[in-house]
Simulated scan of single mutants.
Amino acid sequence: MADYYVQGSFSFTCTAAESALIEEAWQHAADLGDKAAPGESSAEFLAAFPPTDLGNPFNGLLEIFDDPNFPTFGAEIEISGAGTCLVTIFGDTDFQPDTIAALVQRCCRQTLSEAPIGFEWSYSCSRPRADGIGGGWCAIFVDRIEFGATRERLARTLRPATHRDPWIEEPAHPLSDWRSEVANDDTRLGYLDWVDARSAALPNPR
């Protein structure tokens, strides 16, 4: 038998109103998880987590969890500051990247409109199991959430150049640049062919 752990710890700054919304959502989730009656929800909370059933003002929050019957973030939270607040979220056994990312995106619209927020996490195993250790990253934008895993990067690095995956972005050649050239009819190459052509056009470093 082996135990698996997902760990994460990160901090970010946001407005006082956003941190208050995060704290409210966190407390409602804790109450719902403990089968206790949640406190009254604020107008800001209902706007961030609009209920689909007017008889249950919290089902908008519950939909960000993998299992609405067990609304847990697998982490703890600390908030400090006044005008600009520092929010720290950390967990060492069952950190939930997807749910935490959704919470931050719902609650921090103003901050995310200025700059994205990112964090990393790791997973490990109490026994030396194959594929039992790894990690990942998350980038939260106002309009989307992106995830990646160290395993994907390792696989791409180990894969022969002739077997590159066209669905994996080359860091030096962003997909956004390729899409822009396609949209402007500046290229009709596929992504990997475009990467090769672009690389060949760059001067060789000395």
Rank of each mutant, 00 (worst) to 15 (best):
D193Y: 02
T15G: 08
I140N: 01
A37N: 12
P97L: 13
D131S: 12
A130I: 11
I140H: 02
I140A: 02
D67C: 07
H163E: 13
P50Y: 08
L189Q: 15
A16W: 09
A17W: 03
P68M: 09
A172N: 06
W137S: 12
Q110L: 11
R153G: 07
R106S: 13
P116R: 06
T15A: 09
Q27N: 04
L103F: 01
E76A: 05
K35Y: 11
R188H: 13
L103D: 02
A149K: 05
F90V: 15
A36V: 07
A200Q: 14
C107T: 13
W178V: 02
D186S: 08
C14S: 09
S19G: 13
C14E: 02
H28C: 14
E146K: 07
C108E: 10
E78C: 09
S42P: 08
E44F: 01
D177L: 11
A17K: 14
H28Y: 08
S124K: 07
E63H: 06
C85R: 14
Q96V: 08
W167C: 04
R144V: 02
A197R: 04
Q105A: 05
R153L: 15
M1F: 11
L175N: 01
F70K: 15
I100F: 10
G55P: 00
F12G: 09
A36K: 14
T111S: 10
N56D: 15
F12K: 10
T72I: 14
A16N: 14
I100A: 11
V195P: 01
F141R: 04
Y123Q: 00
D31E: 07
P97V: 12
A130N: 08
C85P: 04
V104P: 02
I168M: 06
D177S: 12
G60A: 07
F90L: 14
H173V: 00
W194C: 02
P171H: 06
V6N: 06
Q110G: 00
G148M: 00
E181G: 06
W167G: 04
F147N: 03
A36E: 13
G132S: 07
D92L: 13
R151N: 14
S19F: 09
L192C: 00
C125A: 09
E169F: 00
L54K: 12
